[in-house]
C-alpha cells in the first residue's frame, strides 16, 4: 500500500464524495446531460429527483463508470469512477428493465456471501441479510423470489461490501406502498451511519423522509437544489380556478404566487405557491371573474408540472392536455372554517 509512485496520498476525508462539473452526455441527437453540475459531501444523502428521461440514470451510470462522460469532469471519492468502483468503496443498485437482476440457481445467502468477498472490507453476511430484511429468505433460491423480494436482494448486493458510497437508481420502482415504506426505513438506518447515499427517484413524496438534500434535474440540468422543505416551497401546491372572458394569460402569470396559468376558453386555472396572495392580487388586478374556487393541487402532479415544459409555456391551448387533470379537492372544512 502506498508504494506506488511517491509518498502515499492522504485519503482526503474532507473532500466531497463526488463531483460532477459541466458534464455533457448525448445519445446520438438526444442530450441526456446538459452541463450538469453536482457535488455531494461525504455522509450526505442526496435525492436526484426528476421526471422520466431527465437524465438520472445516465448521471448515475457515469458516476459508476459504466459510461464515460463525453464532456466535463467527474470525480468519485477523490478519483475517477472506475478506480473508485475497483477500490470496493462503492456499491450500487441499478434500475432494471424486465428481469430480476439476479443470477438463477443460487441461494440468497450464497449470492450475498460471494458478492461480499469481492470487496476488501465487506459487512458480515448476517448483518447484510438483517439490514435488507432478508433473514427469513436467506435459503431461498433466487428464481423463487417475488419482484419486491428480488429488489431487496439487489439492495443487499449494493451494501454487501459495506461501501462508503451507495447509488440507488429508482430503488422502489416496482414496490407496493408497504414495500416502499419498509425500504425507506432500511435506507434511513443505513444512511445514518456516515455513509454517502445518492438515489434517483421520480416520486416527490419519497424524498423528504430520507434525503438531506434534493437536486431536481430536468432535461439533464439542475433546476432546483436544496433541502426538501425548500423544494416543496417552490412547488405550486394550490390551484385557483375561475371563469373569465378574454383574459390575457401573460397578465395572470404576473400575479403574486402564480407559477403557471392555463386558459381554456373561459376557464382559467392558476397553479399557485400561495393561494391567499394570488386571490388578493387577482382582485387588485381588476380582472373580472366568477365561480372562483381554490383547491389543493396534488403534490405529485404539481411536481410533474414544475419539471415539465408546461411550466415554461404557461398557456395551454385546447389541443394540448394539461399535465394535471384531476386536482384533489380541498376538504370543505378548511374553506368554511371561521
Amino acid at each position: 500500500m502506498g508504494l506506488r509512485g511517491g509518498p502515499p496520498r492522504p485519503a482526503e476525508p474532507g473532500g466531497p464524495a463526488l463531483r460532477f462539473s459541466g458534464v455533457v452526455h448525448r445519445y446520438r441527437s438526444i442530450v441526456a446531460l446538459d452541463h450538469l453540475d453536482l457535488e455531494v459531501a461525504r455522509g450526505e444523502t442526496l435525492a436526484l429527483l426528476g421526471p422520466n428521461g431527465a437524465g438520472k440514470s445516465t448521471a448515475i451510470s457515469i458516476l459508476l463508470g459504466i459510461q464515460r462522460a463525453q464532456e466535463g469532469e467527474v470525480s468519485v471519492l477523490g478519483t475517477d469512477p472506475r478506480s473508485a468502483m475497483a477500490s470496493g468503496k462503492v456499491g450500487a443498485m441499478l434500475q432494471v428493465g424486465g428481469g430480476s437482476g439476479l443470477p438463477h440457481g443460487v441461494k440468497v445467502r450464497d449470492l450475498l456471501s460471494m458478492t461480499a468477498r469481492l470487496y476488501r472490507n465487506p459487512a458480515p453476511v448476517a448483518r447484510t441479510l438483517a439490514r435488507s430484511g432478508l433473514t427469513e429468505l436467506a435459503d431461498r433460491q433466487t428464481q423463487r423470489l417475488s419482484g419486491g423480494q428480488a429488489q431487496r436482494v439487489r439492495f443487499a448486493l449494493a451494501i454487501a461490501g459495506d461501501p462508503e458510497l451507495v447509488f440507488l437508481d429508482e430503488p422502489t420502482i416496482a414496490m407496493d406502498v408497504e414495500g416502499r415504506r419498509s425500504f425507506w426505513a432500511m435506507m434511513r438506518q443505513f444512511s445514518t451511519e456516515g455513509r454517502t447515499v445518492v438515489f434517483a427517484t421520480h416520486h416527490l413524496d419519497e424524498v423528504d423522509a430520507v434525503a438531506d438534500r434534493i437536486v431536481v434535474i430536468r432535461k439533464g440540468a439542475v433546476v432546483a437544489n436544496g433541502a426538501a422543505s425548500t423544494i416543496k416551497a417552490a412547488v405550486p401546491t394550490r390551484r385557483v380556478r375561475f371563469a373569465s372572458k378574454g383574459v390575457d394569460p401573460a397578465r395572470l402569470r404576473e400575479l403574486d404566487g402564480v407559477n403557471a396559468a392555463c386558459v381554456r376558453g373561459s376557464q382559467v386555472v392558476l397553479d399557485s405557491l400561495d393561494a391567499d396572495a394570488t386571490v388578493r392580487a387577482l382582485v387588485a388586478s381588476g380582472v373580472s371573474f366568477t365561480d372562483i374556487e381554490v383547491t389543493g393541487a396534488d403534490l405529485e402532479q404539481a411536481f410533474v408540472a414544475l419539471t415539465s415544459d408546461l411550466a415554461e409555456a404557461h398557456t395551454v391551448d385546447d389541443a394540448v392536455a394539461p399535465a394535471y387533470s384531476a386536482p384533489i379537492r380541498r376538504p370543505p372544512a378548511s374553506r368554511t372554517a371561521p
Binding site: L64, I66, M85, A86, S87, G88, V90, G91, A92, L94, V96, G97, G98, G99, S100, G101, L102, P103, H104, T115, L118, Y119, R120, R154, L157, A158, G161, F167
Partner: peptide, 18 residues
Amino acid sequence: AAERASGWTRQLRVTPLP
C-alpha cells in the same frame, strides 16, 4: 443470454470485479 436479459451482467459491472 439469460443473465444478460435478467440484468445480472450489469449488476456485476458495479462490483470491484474488472
